[in-house]
Write a protein that binds this DNA or RNA. Structure first.
Lengths: 224, 224
DNA sequence: CAGCGGTCTTGATATATATCAAGCAACAAT
DNA sequence: ATTGTTGCTTGATATATATCAAGACCGCTG
Protein backbone atom coordinates (compact mmCIF):
# COMPACT_ATOMS: atom_id res chain seq x y z
CA UNK A 1 0.00 0.00 0.00
CA UNK A 2 2.63 2.61 0.94
CA UNK A 3 4.70 3.61 -2.08
CA UNK A 4 8.43 3.30 -1.48
CA UNK A 5 10.76 5.04 -3.88
CA UNK A 6 14.51 5.41 -4.03
CA UNK A 7 14.18 8.38 -6.34
CA UNK A 8 13.91 11.30 -3.93
CA UNK A 9 12.32 14.58 -4.90
CA UNK A 10 15.55 16.41 -5.08
CA UNK A 11 14.32 19.91 -5.61
CA UNK A 12 11.84 19.69 -2.74
CA UNK A 13 14.53 18.34 -0.46
CA UNK A 14 17.08 20.89 -1.54
CA UNK A 15 14.68 23.71 -0.80
CA UNK A 16 13.72 22.53 2.71
CA UNK A 17 14.98 24.92 5.39
CA UNK A 18 17.24 22.23 6.84
CA UNK A 19 19.01 21.22 3.66
CA UNK A 20 19.08 24.76 2.30
CA UNK A 21 21.12 25.55 5.42
CA UNK A 22 23.21 22.36 5.36
CA UNK A 23 24.31 22.46 1.72
CA UNK A 24 24.74 19.94 -1.08
CA UNK A 25 27.50 17.76 0.33
CA UNK A 26 25.76 17.30 3.66
CA UNK A 27 22.53 16.60 1.87
CA UNK A 28 24.13 13.95 -0.31
CA UNK A 29 25.56 12.29 2.78
CA UNK A 30 22.15 11.90 4.40
CA UNK A 31 20.33 10.98 1.23
CA UNK A 32 22.48 8.01 0.35
CA UNK A 33 20.85 5.54 2.77
CA UNK A 34 17.44 7.23 2.79
CA UNK A 35 14.20 6.51 1.00
CA UNK A 36 10.91 8.19 0.27
CA UNK A 37 7.45 7.01 1.28
CA UNK A 38 3.98 8.06 0.19
CA UNK A 39 1.59 7.44 3.07
CA UNK A 40 -2.15 7.92 3.44
CA UNK A 41 -3.75 10.21 5.95
CA UNK A 42 -4.03 8.78 9.51
CA UNK A 43 -0.78 6.81 9.10
CA UNK A 44 1.23 6.81 12.29
CA UNK A 45 4.84 7.57 11.38
CA UNK A 46 6.22 7.18 14.87
CA UNK A 47 4.76 6.39 18.27
CA UNK A 48 4.81 8.39 21.49
CA UNK A 49 7.13 6.74 24.04
CA UNK A 50 9.01 4.71 21.39
CA UNK A 51 12.64 5.23 20.45
CA UNK A 52 13.37 6.70 17.01
CA UNK A 53 14.58 4.70 14.02
CA UNK A 54 14.37 7.56 11.51
CA UNK A 55 14.33 11.27 11.08
CA UNK A 56 11.48 12.22 8.76
CA UNK A 57 11.69 15.03 6.23
CA UNK A 58 8.17 15.99 5.25
CA UNK A 59 8.02 16.54 1.50
CA UNK A 60 4.28 17.07 1.07
CA UNK A 61 1.22 17.15 3.27
CA UNK A 62 0.84 17.71 7.01
CA UNK A 63 1.94 15.78 10.05
CA UNK A 64 0.52 16.35 13.51
CA UNK A 65 2.28 15.62 16.78
CA UNK A 66 -0.38 13.93 18.88
CA UNK A 67 0.28 13.53 22.57
CA UNK A 68 -1.66 11.63 25.17
CA UNK A 69 -1.60 12.25 28.89
CA UNK A 70 -1.93 9.57 31.55
CA UNK A 71 -5.54 10.51 32.24
CA UNK A 72 -6.51 9.55 28.72
CA UNK A 73 -6.88 12.85 26.89
CA UNK A 74 -5.23 13.53 23.55
CA UNK A 75 -4.10 16.72 21.90
CA UNK A 76 -2.07 18.09 19.01
CA UNK A 77 1.14 19.76 20.09
CA UNK A 78 2.27 20.95 16.67
CA UNK A 79 1.44 20.65 12.99
CA UNK A 80 4.33 20.46 10.52
CA UNK A 81 4.12 21.26 6.85
CA UNK A 82 6.32 20.48 3.84
CA UNK A 83 10.03 21.01 4.33
CA UNK A 84 10.06 20.31 8.02
CA UNK A 85 12.31 17.72 9.64
CA UNK A 86 11.06 15.73 12.62
CA UNK A 87 11.67 14.70 15.32
CA UNK A 88 15.25 15.78 15.80
CA UNK A 89 15.35 16.12 19.62
CA UNK A 90 14.32 12.55 20.31
CA UNK A 91 16.77 11.24 17.71
CA UNK A 92 19.71 13.25 18.96
CA UNK A 93 19.09 12.75 22.66
CA UNK A 94 18.29 9.08 22.07
CA UNK A 95 15.09 9.50 24.06
CA UNK A 96 11.56 8.29 23.44
CA UNK A 97 9.25 10.49 21.39
CA UNK A 98 7.06 12.81 23.49
CA UNK A 99 4.30 12.58 20.90
CA UNK A 100 3.22 10.43 18.00
CA UNK A 101 3.63 11.63 14.44
CA UNK A 102 0.33 11.24 12.59
CA UNK A 103 -0.33 12.06 8.95
CA UNK A 104 -3.14 14.63 8.89
CA UNK A 105 -3.31 14.43 5.10
CA UNK A 106 -1.75 12.06 2.61
CA UNK A 107 1.97 12.68 3.01
CA UNK A 108 5.23 12.12 1.24
CA UNK A 109 8.23 11.76 3.56
CA UNK A 110 11.93 11.12 3.22
CA UNK A 111 13.05 8.64 5.87
CA UNK A 112 16.61 9.22 7.04
CA UNK A 113 17.99 6.49 9.32
CA UNK A 114 18.46 7.87 12.80
CA UNK A 115 22.01 6.58 13.11
CA UNK A 116 23.00 8.19 9.80
CA UNK A 117 21.58 11.46 11.02
CA UNK A 118 23.37 11.29 14.37
CA UNK A 119 26.71 10.50 12.71
CA UNK A 120 26.22 13.23 10.15
CA UNK A 121 25.47 15.85 12.79
CA UNK A 122 28.42 14.72 14.91
CA UNK A 123 30.90 14.77 12.02
CA UNK A 124 29.77 17.45 9.60
CA UNK A 125 29.78 21.07 10.84
CA UNK A 126 27.31 22.07 8.16
CA UNK A 127 24.81 19.53 9.48
CA UNK A 128 25.44 20.63 13.04
CA UNK A 129 24.81 24.23 12.10
CA UNK A 130 21.62 23.39 10.21
CA UNK A 131 20.42 21.34 13.17
CA UNK A 132 21.06 24.20 15.57
CA UNK A 133 19.07 26.54 13.36
CA UNK A 134 16.21 24.10 13.07
CA UNK A 135 16.05 23.44 16.80
CA UNK A 136 16.20 27.16 17.57
CA UNK A 137 13.40 27.89 15.15
CA UNK A 138 11.24 25.07 16.51
CA UNK A 139 11.79 26.22 20.09
CA UNK A 140 10.63 29.70 19.20
CA UNK A 141 7.51 28.26 17.59
CA UNK A 142 6.74 26.47 20.86
CA UNK A 143 7.28 29.66 22.85
CA UNK A 144 4.93 31.47 20.51
CA UNK A 145 2.33 28.76 21.06
CA UNK A 146 2.62 28.94 24.82
CA UNK A 147 2.12 32.70 24.73
CA UNK A 148 -0.89 32.17 22.45
CA UNK A 149 -2.41 29.63 24.80
CA UNK A 150 -1.87 31.74 27.88
CA UNK A 151 -2.68 35.21 26.67
CA UNK A 152 -4.94 35.20 23.69
CA UNK A 153 -8.61 34.24 23.48
CA UNK A 154 -9.62 31.51 21.06
CA UNK A 155 -10.78 33.79 18.27
CA UNK A 156 -7.54 35.77 18.26
CA UNK A 157 -5.59 32.52 18.13
CA UNK A 158 -7.51 31.36 15.10
CA UNK A 159 -7.10 34.70 13.37
CA UNK A 160 -3.32 34.63 13.88
CA UNK A 161 -3.18 31.07 12.60
CA UNK A 162 -4.96 32.03 9.40
CA UNK A 163 -2.65 34.99 8.89
CA UNK A 164 0.34 32.67 9.08
CA UNK A 165 -1.26 30.07 6.81
CA UNK A 166 -1.69 32.59 3.99
CA UNK A 167 1.34 32.32 1.71
CA UNK A 168 1.08 35.90 0.48
CA UNK A 169 3.06 38.40 2.51
CA UNK A 170 0.40 41.06 2.43
CA UNK A 171 -3.08 41.81 1.28
CA UNK A 172 -5.60 39.21 0.19
CA UNK A 173 -4.72 35.54 0.13
CA UNK A 174 -5.94 32.03 0.63
CA UNK A 175 -5.27 29.75 3.58
CA UNK A 176 -5.60 26.12 2.57
CA UNK A 177 -6.97 23.97 5.37
CA UNK A 178 -6.54 20.34 4.32
CA UNK A 179 -6.18 18.99 7.84
CA UNK A 180 -9.09 17.74 9.94
CA UNK A 181 -10.76 20.50 11.89
CA UNK A 182 -10.20 18.56 15.10
CA UNK A 183 -6.43 18.68 14.60
CA UNK A 184 -6.42 22.37 13.73
CA UNK A 185 -8.52 23.09 16.80
CA UNK A 186 -6.39 21.01 19.14
CA UNK A 187 -3.17 22.69 17.94
CA UNK A 188 -4.84 25.96 18.86
CA UNK A 189 -5.75 24.63 22.28
CA UNK A 190 -9.45 24.25 21.65
CA UNK A 191 -12.22 22.02 20.36
CA UNK A 192 -13.74 21.73 16.88
CA UNK A 193 -16.83 23.50 18.19
CA UNK A 194 -14.80 26.51 19.30
CA UNK A 195 -12.84 26.56 16.04
CA UNK A 196 -16.07 26.57 14.04
CA UNK A 197 -17.44 29.43 16.13
CA UNK A 198 -14.25 31.46 15.79
CA UNK A 199 -14.14 30.97 12.02
CA UNK A 200 -17.81 31.92 11.77
CA UNK A 201 -17.17 35.06 13.82
CA UNK A 202 -14.27 36.10 11.59
CA UNK A 203 -16.45 35.53 8.55
CA UNK A 204 -19.23 37.53 10.13
CA UNK A 205 -16.77 40.38 10.64
CA UNK A 206 -15.92 40.26 6.93
CA UNK A 207 -12.31 39.22 7.54
CA UNK A 208 -12.51 35.86 5.74
CA UNK A 209 -14.70 33.90 3.37
CA UNK A 210 -15.03 30.27 4.36
CA UNK A 211 -15.37 27.16 2.28
CA UNK A 212 -14.87 23.53 3.16
CA UNK A 213 -11.11 23.28 2.96
CA UNK A 214 -9.99 26.89 2.65
CA UNK A 215 -10.41 30.37 3.97
CA UNK A 216 -10.07 33.32 1.65
CA UNK A 217 -8.48 36.11 3.62
CA UNK A 218 -9.49 39.65 2.73
CA UNK A 219 -6.46 41.40 4.22
CA UNK A 220 -3.77 39.41 6.01
CA UNK A 221 -2.69 42.35 8.12
CA UNK A 222 -6.08 42.63 9.76
CA UNK A 223 -5.77 39.06 11.09
CA UNK A 224 -2.19 39.15 12.34
CA UNK B 1 24.72 48.18 42.91
CA UNK B 2 25.15 45.02 40.77
CA UNK B 3 28.29 43.14 41.77
CA UNK B 4 30.57 42.46 38.82
CA UNK B 5 33.28 39.87 39.24
CA UNK B 6 35.90 38.51 36.91
CA UNK B 7 36.40 35.51 39.18
CA UNK B 8 33.83 33.07 37.93
CA UNK B 9 32.43 30.29 40.02
CA UNK B 10 34.29 27.60 38.23
CA UNK B 11 32.77 24.54 39.81
CA UNK B 12 29.22 25.76 39.30
CA UNK B 13 29.96 26.56 35.68
CA UNK B 14 31.75 23.27 35.07
CA UNK B 15 28.78 21.34 36.42
CA UNK B 16 26.13 23.12 34.34
CA UNK B 17 24.57 20.77 31.76
CA UNK B 18 25.92 22.86 28.89
CA UNK B 19 29.56 22.96 29.98
CA UNK B 20 29.50 19.44 31.33
CA UNK B 21 28.65 18.46 27.75
CA UNK B 22 31.02 20.89 26.07
CA UNK B 23 34.15 20.08 28.06
CA UNK B 24 37.04 22.04 29.57
CA UNK B 25 38.64 23.50 26.46
CA UNK B 26 35.35 24.80 25.08
CA UNK B 27 34.49 26.19 28.46
CA UNK B 28 37.80 28.01 28.73
CA UNK B 29 37.23 29.53 25.33
CA UNK B 30 33.88 31.03 26.33
CA UNK B 31 34.96 32.09 29.79
CA UNK B 32 37.88 34.21 28.67
CA UNK B 33 35.83 37.29 27.70
CA UNK B 34 32.98 36.65 30.11
CA UNK B 35 32.12 38.07 33.51
CA UNK B 36 29.83 37.31 36.41
CA UNK B 37 27.09 39.51 37.82
CA UNK B 38 25.09 39.39 41.01
CA UNK B 39 21.71 40.98 40.41
CA UNK B 40 18.69 41.61 42.67
CA UNK B 41 15.30 40.15 42.12
CA UNK B 42 13.16 41.97 39.49
CA UNK B 43 16.23 42.90 37.43
CA UNK B 44 15.52 42.67 33.73
CA UNK B 45 18.42 40.82 32.10
CA UNK B 46 17.17 41.20 28.56
CA UNK B 47 14.13 42.73 26.93
CA UNK B 48 11.48 41.16 24.73
CA UNK B 49 11.88 42.36 21.12
CA UNK B 50 15.52 43.47 21.62
CA UNK B 51 18.51 41.85 19.96
CA UNK B 52 20.88 39.86 22.19
CA UNK B 53 24.27 41.10 23.40
CA UNK B 54 24.97 38.16 25.71
CA UNK B 55 24.19 34.59 26.48
CA UNK B 56 23.46 34.24 30.18
CA UNK B 57 24.50 31.22 32.23
CA UNK B 58 22.43 31.22 35.40
CA UNK B 59 24.64 30.32 38.35
CA UNK B 60 22.19 30.84 41.20
CA UNK B 61 18.59 31.84 41.60
CA UNK B 62 15.67 31.82 39.13
CA UNK B 63 14.98 33.67 35.94
CA UNK B 64 11.54 33.92 34.38
CA UNK B 65 10.81 34.46 30.69
CA UNK B 66 8.06 37.04 30.71
CA UNK B 67 6.18 37.64 27.50
CA UNK B 68 3.62 40.29 26.65
CA UNK B 69 1.04 40.09 23.92
CA UNK B 70 -0.23 43.02 21.89
CA UNK B 71 -3.45 43.23 23.86
CA UNK B 72 -1.52 44.00 27.01
CA UNK B 73 -1.49 40.77 28.96
CA UNK B 74 1.68 39.30 30.41
CA UNK B 75 2.67 35.76 31.22
CA UNK B 76 5.62 33.58 32.18
CA UNK B 77 6.68 31.19 29.43
CA UNK B 78 9.39 29.37 31.36
CA UNK B 79 11.33 29.50 34.61
CA UNK B 80 15.00 28.59 34.51
CA UNK B 81 17.07 27.49 37.48
CA UNK B 82 20.80 27.29 38.18
CA UNK B 83 22.94 25.78 35.44
CA UNK B 84 20.70 26.84 32.58
CA UNK B 85 21.92 28.85 29.59
CA UNK B 86 19.64 31.44 27.99
CA UNK B 87 18.57 32.55 25.47
CA UNK B 88 20.44 30.56 22.86
CA UNK B 89 17.89 30.61 20.01
CA UNK B 90 17.71 34.40 19.80
CA UNK B 91 21.51 34.66 19.95
CA UNK B 92 22.16 32.04 17.29
CA UNK B 93 19.43 33.11 14.91
CA UNK B 94 20.29 36.75 15.46
CA UNK B 95 16.64 37.49 16.15
CA UNK B 96 14.93 39.57 18.82
CA UNK B 97 14.05 37.90 22.10
CA UNK B 98 10.49 36.54 22.25
CA UNK B 99 10.34 37.24 25.96
CA UNK B 100 12.11 39.29 28.60
CA UNK B 101 14.42 37.64 31.10
CA UNK B 102 13.47 38.74 34.60
CA UNK B 103 15.16 37.74 37.84
CA UNK B 104 12.54 36.09 40.04
CA UNK B 105 14.98 35.90 42.94
CA UNK B 106 18.37 37.47 43.48
CA UNK B 107 20.53 35.86 40.78
CA UNK B 108 24.10 35.29 39.87
CA UNK B 109 24.78 35.03 36.14
CA UNK B 110 27.74 34.54 33.89
CA UNK B 111 27.49 36.88 30.89
CA UNK B 112 29.04 35.46 27.73
CA UNK B 113 29.26 37.92 24.84
CA UNK B 114 26.89 36.86 22.08
CA UNK B 115 29.54 37.11 19.37
CA UNK B 116 31.93 34.94 21.36
CA UNK B 117 29.24 32.36 21.74
CA UNK B 118 28.32 32.39 18.06
CA UNK B 119 31.96 32.01 16.99
CA UNK B 120 32.53 29.28 19.52
CA UNK B 121 29.54 27.27 18.35
CA UNK B 122 30.50 27.76 14.69
CA UNK B 123 34.12 26.68 15.20
CA UNK B 124 34.18 24.17 18.03
CA UNK B 125 32.34 20.86 17.50
CA UNK B 126 32.11 20.32 21.25
CA UNK B 127 30.22 23.58 21.64
CA UNK B 128 27.99 22.76 18.70
CA UNK B 129 27.15 19.39 20.21
CA UNK B 130 26.43 20.89 23.64
CA UNK B 131 24.22 23.50 22.00
CA UNK B 132 22.27 20.85 20.13
CA UNK B 133 21.69 18.94 23.33
CA UNK B 134 20.58 22.05 25.17
CA UNK B 135 18.18 23.12 22.43
CA UNK B 136 16.74 19.62 22.16
CA UNK B 137 16.18 19.46 25.89
CA UNK B 138 14.57 22.90 25.99
CA UNK B 139 12.26 22.04 23.10
CA UNK B 140 11.08 18.94 24.91
CA UNK B 141 10.38 21.02 28.01
CA UNK B 142 8.19 23.28 25.91
CA UNK B 143 6.35 20.32 24.42
CA UNK B 144 5.75 19.00 27.89
CA UNK B 145 4.34 22.36 28.92
CA UNK B 146 2.00 22.55 25.94
CA UNK B 147 0.67 19.08 26.77
CA UNK B 148 0.23 20.19 30.39
CA UNK B 149 -1.68 23.30 29.38
CA UNK B 150 -3.92 21.47 26.96
CA UNK B 151 -4.66 18.24 28.77
CA UNK B 152 -4.24 18.56 32.48
CA UNK B 153 -6.37 20.48 34.98
CA UNK B 154 -4.72 23.10 37.14
CA UNK B 155 -4.31 20.94 40.23
CA UNK B 156 -2.62 18.16 38.29
CA UNK B 157 -0.26 20.69 36.74
CA UNK B 158 0.72 22.02 40.14
CA UNK B 159 1.23 18.54 41.52
CA UNK B 160 3.54 17.61 38.64
CA UNK B 161 5.46 20.82 39.10
CA UNK B 162 6.08 20.07 42.78
CA UNK B 163 7.21 16.55 41.96
CA UNK B 164 9.81 17.95 39.58
CA UNK B 165 10.91 20.62 42.01
CA UNK B 166 11.80 18.05 44.67
CA UNK B 167 15.48 17.22 44.30
CA UNK B 168 15.13 13.76 45.79
CA UNK B 169 14.49 11.03 43.24
CA UNK B 170 11.94 9.24 45.37
CA UNK B 171 10.10 9.36 48.65
CA UNK B 172 9.78 12.43 50.82
CA UNK B 173 11.44 15.68 49.89
CA UNK B 174 11.24 19.42 49.92
CA UNK B 175 10.36 21.71 47.05
CA UNK B 176 11.82 25.16 47.61
CA UNK B 177 9.59 27.90 46.19
CA UNK B 178 11.59 31.11 46.30
CA UNK B 179 9.88 32.69 43.30
CA UNK B 180 6.84 34.93 43.53
CA UNK B 181 3.62 32.97 43.50
CA UNK B 182 2.41 35.00 40.53
CA UNK B 183 5.33 33.78 38.42
CA UNK B 184 4.89 30.16 39.47
CA UNK B 185 1.20 30.38 38.65
CA UNK B 186 1.72 32.03 35.28
CA UNK B 187 4.26 29.39 34.23
CA UNK B 188 1.57 26.83 34.98
CA UNK B 189 -0.95 28.72 32.91
CA UNK B 190 -2.98 30.05 35.82
CA UNK B 191 -3.45 32.82 38.35
CA UNK B 192 -2.13 33.16 41.90
CA UNK B 193 -5.64 32.46 43.18
CA UNK B 194 -5.78 29.14 41.33
CA UNK B 195 -2.28 28.20 42.46
CA UNK B 196 -3.23 28.87 46.08
CA UNK B 197 -6.31 26.74 45.74
CA UNK B 198 -4.43 23.89 44.12
CA UNK B 199 -1.74 23.94 46.79
CA UNK B 200 -4.38 24.02 49.51
CA UNK B 201 -6.16 21.07 47.91
CA UNK B 202 -2.95 19.02 47.75
CA UNK B 203 -2.31 19.85 51.40
CA UNK B 204 -5.85 18.89 52.27
CA UNK B 205 -5.25 15.52 50.60
CA UNK B 206 -2.18 15.02 52.76
CA UNK B 207 0.22 15.07 49.81
CA UNK B 208 2.20 18.15 50.90
CA UNK B 209 2.78 20.38 53.89
CA UNK B 210 2.91 24.04 52.99
CA UNK B 211 4.91 26.89 54.42
CA UNK B 212 5.72 30.31 53.03
CA UNK B 213 8.51 29.46 50.62
CA UNK B 214 8.50 25.68 50.53
CA UNK B 215 6.36 22.61 50.21
CA UNK B 216 7.31 19.46 52.04
CA UNK B 217 6.34 16.55 49.85
CA UNK B 218 5.26 13.36 51.55
CA UNK B 219 5.89 11.00 48.63
CA UNK B 220 7.12 12.34 45.31
CA UNK B 221 5.67 9.46 43.34
CA UNK B 222 2.14 10.35 44.42
CA UNK B 223 2.47 13.77 42.81
CA UNK B 224 4.13 12.81 39.51
C1' DC C 1 -26.57 9.29 -9.13
C1' DA C 2 -27.86 7.55 -4.45
C1' DG C 3 -26.66 5.98 -0.05
C1' DC C 4 -23.69 5.69 3.80
C1' DG C 5 -20.37 7.01 7.10
C1' DG C 6 -17.59 10.34 8.99
C1' DT C 7 -16.81 15.11 9.91
C1' DC C 8 -18.37 19.60 10.91
C1' DT C 9 -21.55 23.09 12.62
C1' DT C 10 -24.75 25.05 15.76
C1' DG C 11 -27.80 25.69 19.87
C1' DA C 12 -28.17 24.79 24.71
C1' DT C 13 -26.08 23.83 29.00
C1' DA C 14 -22.12 22.81 32.15
C1' DT C 15 -17.68 23.75 34.07
C1' DA C 16 -12.90 24.92 35.23
C1' DT C 17 -10.83 28.79 36.26
C1' DA C 18 -10.53 33.95 35.96
C1' DT C 19 -11.89 38.04 38.21
C1' DC C 20 -13.12 40.85 42.01
C1' DA C 21 -12.75 42.19 46.65
C1' DA C 22 -11.31 41.98 51.26
C1' DG C 23 -8.63 40.22 54.83
C1' DC C 24 -4.26 38.03 56.23
C1' DA C 25 0.72 37.21 56.07
C1' DA C 26 5.34 38.36 55.08
C1' DC C 27 8.83 41.55 54.42
C1' DA C 28 11.24 46.00 54.60
C1' DA C 29 12.18 50.35 56.70
C1' DT C 30 12.60 53.12 60.71
C1' DA D 1 9.53 46.72 68.21
C1' DT D 2 6.28 49.15 65.21
C1' DT D 3 4.43 50.65 60.95
C1' DG D 4 3.66 50.55 56.12
C1' DT D 5 3.78 48.18 51.81
C1' DT D 6 3.49 44.35 48.98
C1' DG D 7 2.23 39.77 48.12
C1' DC D 8 -0.85 35.92 49.12
C1' DT D 9 -5.13 33.62 50.35
C1' DT D 10 -9.98 32.93 50.36
C1' DG D 11 -15.02 33.56 49.39
C1' DA D 12 -18.24 35.01 45.94
C1' DT D 13 -19.37 35.83 41.27
C1' DA D 14 -18.41 36.05 36.22
C1' DT D 15 -16.83 34.13 31.94
C1' DA D 16 -14.56 31.83 28.05
C1' DT D 17 -14.86 27.67 26.34
C1' DA D 18 -15.89 22.63 26.96
C1' DT D 19 -19.47 19.35 26.60
C1' DC D 20 -23.59 17.40 24.85
C1' DA D 21 -26.77 16.51 21.29
C1' DA D 22 -28.72 16.79 16.88
C1' DG D 23 -28.80 18.20 12.27
C1' DA D 24 -26.14 19.55 8.10
C1' DC D 25 -22.47 18.80 5.04
C1' DC D 26 -18.90 16.44 2.55
C1' DG D 27 -16.46 12.71 0.56
C1' DC D 28 -16.30 8.08 -0.89
C1' DT D 29 -18.11 3.88 -2.90
C1' DG D 30 -20.95 1.03 -5.74
Amino acid sequence: MPTISRTPNLELIRRSPFFAAAGEAAMARLLRPSFTQQLPRTTILFDQNELPDFVHLLLAGSIGLKAEAEAGGETVVEIFGPGELLLVPAVLLGLPYLASGVALTDVRVLMIPAETFREGVAQDPALARATIELLSRHWRLMVDQVVDLKLRPAERRVARFLARRVPEEAGAGTAELPEPRAALAARRGGTPATLSRALAALEQQGLIRLSARRADVVDRARLA
